[in-house]
Simulated assay, not measured.
Amino acid sequence: MTEFVMVAGAWLGAWAWDEVVPELRAAGHGAHALTLSGLAEKRDAPAGQRTHVQDIVDEVVRRDLRDVVLVGHSYAGIPVGQAAERIGDRLARVVFVDSNVPADGESFASAWWQGPGVLEPVIAANGGFWAPLPAADFAGQGLSDEQIARIVAGATPHPGAALTEPAVLTGSLGALPATYVKCLLDGPDPTDDVAKLLTGERWRLVELDTGHWPMFSRPRELAGILLAAAESAES
């Protein structure tokens, strides 16, 4: 039995996986959706990026999980990638869902697509948090009006330190067994850092014809990709 530990991206909590978890459990696996510190029901907890890495490691250790598939969506790929390194032989595979990936010494903000130094003033102007997106910014991502409304209603401000603290990796990310899920409505090609990782023998690319939030727009298809990733980890 595989144990999936799933972490959603910025502004979201464990609730984002509500339609994926039943699919995984119906297939006979464990499914654990995790809310990171400072978000959703944990919004009052102080948090940074290092805290988020520890949140993930603690979840695995506290539950004594083995054969773990760690799943990181969007921002969460950064702490998930670091946690994967730290859980040792408990790890079966990592799945990055249209996500950022960690680079030693770099942060989410330093690798921001608009360039370094752009996101930090936005965070500072909002009291140290990254404000959730308005409904209009979810257009063109394969989401229904109802799904967009659900995301907007559940989103909470994202703690800024999680976005500005640098990642710490002791080994090569390319050495981890990994699947990268590219959501095509969010851009047809992986970023350059991901493309380089995909040239290695241990990384696989899966494309999904939907937008950046597939746990809402295509939960069954996403669950199928996660199950296939678990099977590849066993082979």
Rank of each mutant, 00 (worst) to 15 (best):
P116L: 10
K42Q: 13
Y180V: 00
V53C: 00
P102I: 13
E59T: 13
V21D: 05
D58E: 15
S107C: 04
I151V: 07
E120G: 08
G171I: 14
P188Y: 12
A27S: 13
A229R: 00
P46A: 14
L227T: 12
R66N: 11
F129C: 15
K182L: 14
A33C: 08
P102D: 11
I56T: 06
I56M: 09
L119N: 01
G105Y: 14
G171L: 15
A27P: 07
H32S: 09
V53H: 07
K42H: 14
D55R: 08
S107W: 06
L176G: 06
R93Q: 14
E201P: 15
R43P: 02
D137V: 03
G160T: 08
S235R: 15
R25L: 09
G117M: 04
G28F: 15
P214R: 00
L39K: 12
F138H: 07
G174R: 00
A47S: 12
L70Q: 08
E19F: 11
A124F: 06
F216W: 05
L227M: 13
F129M: 15
D145F: 02
L205Q: 08
A230W: 00
E106F: 04
S110V: 05
P188M: 13
G88F: 01
A228F: 13
D98Y: 04
A175M: 07
E59H: 13
A31E: 03
T179K: 08
R202N: 15
E106M: 03
E3W: 05
D186Q: 09
T170N: 02
T191A: 15
V152Q: 02
L24P: 01
R150I: 02
L169C: 12
V5R: 00
E85C: 09
K42F: 06
A178Y: 10
T35N: 08
D104Q: 06
P177Y: 11
G211N: 03
F138A: 10
V94K: 01
A40P: 00
A136F: 11
K196G: 13
A27G: 11
A76N: 07
I78W: 03
P22R: 08
I78P: 04
L91P: 02
E19V: 09
I148A: 06
Q114T: 08
T156H: 01
H158N: 09
A10L: 00
G48K: 06
I123D: 04
A135C: 07
I151D: 01
L119C: 00
G160M: 11
R93D: 13
I148L: 04
P132G: 12
A223I: 05
P157L: 06
S144V: 10
I151K: 03
V118Y: 06
Q49I: 07
A40T: 01
L12G: 05
A16W: 00
A136K: 10
H29G: 01
N126Q: 12
L222T: 02
R150E: 13
A229Y: 00
S74H: 05
S99E: 05
S99P: 11
A83F: 09
P157R: 05
A136N: 08
A233P: 04
L197S: 08
G13P: 05
S99L: 07
A155I: 02
S172V: 02
V97E: 03
E234H: 12
P22C: 11
A233R: 15
R90H: 07
G171R: 15
A149R: 09
H29Y: 07
A92G: 10
A167T: 05
V97F: 01
